[in-house]
Design a protein around this nucleic acid. Structure first.
Ligand code: SF4
Ligand code: SF4
Lengths: 147, 147
DNA sequence: CTTATAAAAGATATTTTAGTCTTTTATATA
DNA sequence: TATATAAAAGACTAAAATATCTTTTATAAG
């Protein structure tokens, strides 16, 4: 459903939301290592996200990527809008373009509530809220230390 | 989450389950038109499915694909096992390979119940049951007549 | 037996996604 | 001002998914 690009992007942004600040920046290299994703791939994605102010960046020594307060007001959809081309949840599960509650495919009553819940979360929960939830729940972002 | 190949395959099998029988066969061409999917692509998939007895086929004039009684005892997972390479639901949503109930990613509590429900359905509901449900619910398989 | 039909098989092409490599630009600090 | 650092930009390669085309094989029916 989500491309690798999106998944990498979401994890990176949440990582920065949890760990970074204006004076604690992370280079693409460290992020790539920490989340175990390809360096040059994530570098590009981070640049894209910086361009649309989902995250911030600064060049040069001690530079890197970070999330400022105002960045954290964005929601996860802002990430997907930039990375993914087109609407993520429209070309749905069973691949029927013209369907929905009126014309349900065989798994609609399973898929629909899930889609709604996820979309609600991605649309209306800010990245900072998401991040706080991760801290509280002990949700997983990095893969370090797990095998 | 599912590839086009899987989605086409599922829809085709369910189409045959609803419409075909030993003496009412459907050629790849008709199926492709009916479900609005690429002819040569679905032809290959149908051949694969016939090889593992998820559906039946016969060559020559008045030949085509159909579902015999015993074919319908299969479940949807049998389709996925043949078409998709590897486990469909393991490389999950957020792309964390080592996670789950103990190490949940930020959306695990949304995704997990959905995954479970869908997997349950795909594993334990036979194609004939699936098909009956479609008839009763008026679920959608074909795209003909919708725009 | 011949012919038309349709699946089976498999080669090839296209598109999308994923991943890598190199060069340029900005900047902090020594 | 020179240097090292790290993002920005963009060209390039690789792999997978998707789709098309051609040839072969089986068979029902005339
Ligand atoms: S689950 Fe619902 S929205 Fe998705 S393809 Fe089926 S009918 Fe359409
Ligand atoms: S934690 Fe749950 S939802 Fe998240 S990737 Fe793993 S299985 Fe999927």
């Amino acid at each position: 459903m989500l491309s690798n690009a999106s998944k990498y992007a979401i994890r990176s942004v949440l990582f920065l939301a949890e760990n970074s600040s204006k004076n604690k920046k992370y280079g693409a290299k460290i992020i790539a290592e920490e989340l175990e994703i390809p360096l040059h791939f994530i570098a590009k994605l981070l640049q894209q996200l910086a361009r649309v102010n989902v995250i911030s960046s600064s060049k040069g020594p001690h530079g890197g990527f970070y999330t400022a307060k105002k960045n954290l007001q964005n929601n996860v959809c802002a990430i997907l809008d930039e990375i993914e081309s087109g609407n993520v949840f429209e070309p749905c599960f069973m691949g029927l373009p013209q369907c929905g509650d009126e014309n349900p495919c065989p798994v609609h009553h399973i898929v629909a509530p899930f889609k709604d819940a996820l979309l609600e979360k991605f649309k209306h929960q800010s990245i900072s809220e998401f991040s706080r939830e991760i801290k509280e729940d002990g949700s997983l972002l990095s893969l370090k230390g797990i095998d």
